[in-house]
Computed example of a mutant assay.
Amino acid sequence: MTRTFFAVLRGLSALLIAALILVTVTDVIGRYILNAPLPGAFELTQILLALLVFTALPLTTARREHVEVDLLAHVLAPRVIRVFGIVAAVVTALSLAFFALRLGIVAEDQAATGARSNALGLPMAVIAGAGVASCAVSAVIALAGARNP
């Protein structure tokens, strides 16, 4: 199940990147060659990029590829480094859980008000909801990583 889940996320990430490329190429060709830019291209690019980040976040968390600074790793004992790894995983999990909570509040507000994007009229609550799911799943993954730093 986990393998399938991550495979789906990788596939969805690839599709989102392809969509970003297609939107950008179409807009550039339309704007500079045909003098007819793609309507809503800027907004669509922003939304696709947000969805890409939310789709890739659990993958990044599972592979422990978040940005780290290990200035002292070469001078500390392995036990201390292990403790730091556990602390970092817990802090990451708590941060992601906080983001999920805050995005949940935003999503509820957007759903209640029927918030839509300006140019394309896309429902914003769906995007925030994707962020909630992504951050919540990533928090669980990070917490699981605390057991094996």
Rank of each mutant, 00 (worst) to 15 (best):
R3Y: 03
R3T: 15
R3K: 04
R3G: 15
T4D: 11
T4W: 11
T4A: 15
F6S: 09
F6Y: 14
V8F: 12
V8E: 09
R10I: 00
G11T: 14
G11M: 11
L12G: 05
S13R: 08
A14I: 14
L16E: 11
A19D: 04
A19G: 09
L20C: 11
V23S: 07
V23T: 08
T24M: 12
V25R: 04
T26W: 05
D27G: 05
V28C: 08
V28F: 02
I29V: 15
I33G: 04
A36Y: 01
A36T: 11
L38D: 01
P39A: 08
P39S: 06
P39N: 06
G40R: 01
G40A: 06
F42T: 09
E43N: 08
L44Y: 03
T45S: 10
T45P: 00
T45R: 03
I47F: 01
I47P: 00
I47A: 06
L48K: 05
L48W: 03
L48H: 00
L49T: 15
A50D: 02
L51F: 02
L51A: 13
L52Y: 10
L52K: 03
T55Q: 07
T55L: 09
A56M: 13
L59M: 09
T60A: 11
T61Y: 07
T61D: 05
A62M: 12
R64K: 15
E65T: 10
H66T: 06
H66L: 13
V67R: 10
E68K: 14
E68S: 13
V69T: 14
D70S: 12
D70T: 09
D70L: 10
L72Q: 09
A73V: 12
H74C: 02
V75R: 14
V75T: 13
V75W: 11
L76T: 05
A77Q: 09
A77S: 09
V80P: 06
I81G: 02
I81F: 03
V83H: 04
F84E: 06
F84P: 01
F84D: 00
F84R: 13
F84I: 14
G85Q: 08
A89V: 04
A89R: 05
V90Y: 07
V91P: 03
V91A: 14
T92E: 08
T92A: 14
A93Q: 06
A93E: 03
L94I: 14
L94Y: 06
A97P: 05
A97T: 10
F98M: 12
F99I: 14
A100S: 12
A100D: 01
A100Q: 07
L101M: 10
R102T: 13
R102S: 15
G104V: 04
I105K: 08
E108R: 09
Q110M: 15
T113E: 04
G114W: 09
R116W: 01
R116T: 13
S117G: 10
N118R: 11
N118L: 12
A119S: 15
A119E: 15
G121D: 08
P123S: 09
M124C: 03
A125S: 14
I127M: 07
I127G: 00
I127E: 03
G129K: 08
A130T: 12
G131T: 05
A133W: 02
A133Y: 01
A133D: 07
S134A: 15
A136G: 05
V137T: 08
V137C: 03
A139M: 10
A139H: 06
V140G: 13
I141P: 07
I141K: 02
L143C: 04
A144V: 10
A146V: 07
R147V: 03
N148W: 06
